[in-house]
Computed example of a mutant assay.
Amino acid sequence: MITLLGPTASGKTALAVRLAHRLGSEILSADSRQVYRGMDVGTGKDLSEYTYEGTTIPYHLIDIVPAGTKYNLFAWQHAFHEAYAAIRERGIQHPILCGGTGLYAEAVLRGYHLPDVAPNPALQESLQGLSLASLRERLASYGPLHNDTDLDSPQRAIRAIEIADYIQRERLAGADHTEYEPIESLILCITLPREERRARITARLRQRLDEGDLIGEVQRLIDSGIAPEDLIYYGLEYKFVTQHLLGELTRDELFTALETAIHQFAKRQMTWFRGMERRGFTLHYIDGLLPREEQLSQALEYLEAWEQK
């Protein structure tokens, strides 16, 4: 397998599509929010990018559950392995896992499996009222394999702590949650200078807001019957745009708060990817400032060297 990582707005999808086109491959999404139908603009699906030189590249793990669902790693891993097995059965040598949710990618590469954890009301109650920073600090105390990348709401952080607490108690009791075999993979990671990354994020956000697509999407989701608190749970675009539509943020406040949150999110993504190296993975970096064809050539060179090992 080939795993292609990178922060938001780094051009992961465009490179993955070109690589899949060259190799006759298919793409599996490692994005915790692109699984939701109807959440397109805010999650940056850019489905039009999956067509390249007249060929539409098959993709998986996108639009697989309705918006409003509380999807999790437990369900995603099962869906991943079903899709991955089907791709391999079609004779495809190098499926491409592409996304920015580091926990999802790492869990697949390690063969790690999180259980389907029931809510813990007592723990939830004990965590109520804590700041998001305090919740992230609490989550970090459980060890490295607990994602805080896209936790920008207390509800999501509390849920992550519930899972981490359950796993810790199960480990102390001698339980083993490894269900899947690790997957051998070439790991590529697109990098951008900090200022370039920030400029791309700001420009993309401004475009989505100025064109009305992002606010319109969130309004349609609310009109379809999805509760505002459920959209706030998803964080980032859905959190802040919902607060704007509820009258809690002005348009200028929406832009400023969301821009800051996405910059912080991208920084946490890169922190996670660098952490993967400390945890024993080898990442091969691709300069996101290079033209797409040069990025593709570099990826193919990495693949050739990897296959020769």
Score class of each variant (00 low, 15 high):
Y234P: 14
L123F: 11
E162S: 02
A118C: 05
A83I: 01
L258E: 14
L258S: 14
V65I: 04
W306L: 01
S134F: 01
D150V: 03
A105F: 02
F240L: 11
G225P: 10
G91H: 04
R138V: 03
E125N: 10
I27V: 08
S48K: 06
I64A: 08
L123I: 05
H244Y: 15
Q124D: 11
F74S: 00
D165L: 05
R22W: 10
A266N: 12
A75H: 14
E248Q: 13
A67D: 11
I92N: 09
P119W: 00
S10I: 03
E181M: 10
T202C: 10
N72M: 01
Q155Y: 01
L289Q: 14
T256I: 11
L114Q: 05
R200N: 03
S25H: 02
S185C: 07
R194P: 15
S29E: 10
D148S: 12
H21T: 02
Q264I: 01
E293T: 04
A118R: 04
P115W: 00
G247W: 07
L47E: 13
F273E: 11
F80L: 06
E304S: 11
P66H: 00
L192K: 06
F240C: 11
A75K: 09
R37I: 10
R159S: 09
R268L: 12
L130G: 04
I187N: 02
E137K: 15
H21Y: 10
T191Y: 06
E137A: 15
H94S: 09
R37H: 08
P144M: 02
W272Q: 08
L103G: 15
R208L: 10
Y166A: 04
L205C: 06
E304H: 06
E304M: 04
E248N: 10
Y50Q: 12
E89R: 09
L28V: 05
I232V: 12
G102D: 10
I27F: 07
T55Q: 14
A122Y: 04
T149V: 15
K70R: 08
A266K: 06
A83K: 01
I161R: 05
E259N: 15
E196D: 13
L231P: 15
I232L: 07
P66F: 00
G225Q: 06
Y84C: 08
D287H: 00
V117R: 01
A30D: 12
E49P: 07
L254R: 01
D148I: 03
Y104I: 12
G280V: 02
R292N: 13
Q264G: 14
A16R: 05
G100P: 05
L73V: 07
L19V: 05
L47N: 13
L28I: 14
G24T: 05
H284P: 14
L172F: 03
E184Y: 08
Q93T: 13
H177M: 12
G275S: 05
L73Y: 11
Q308D: 13
R220A: 15
L132R: 05
P228K: 00
L109T: 04
E293F: 00
L214Y: 07
G54E: 10
G129R: 00
A227F: 02
S141W: 03
T256M: 12
I62T: 06
L231M: 07
G100D: 07
P66S: 03
H113G: 09
D213K: 08
A299R: 02
S131M: 05
Q168F: 10
Y302V: 06
R90I: 08
R208V: 01
G54D: 08
R136F: 10
P154L: 00
V17G: 08
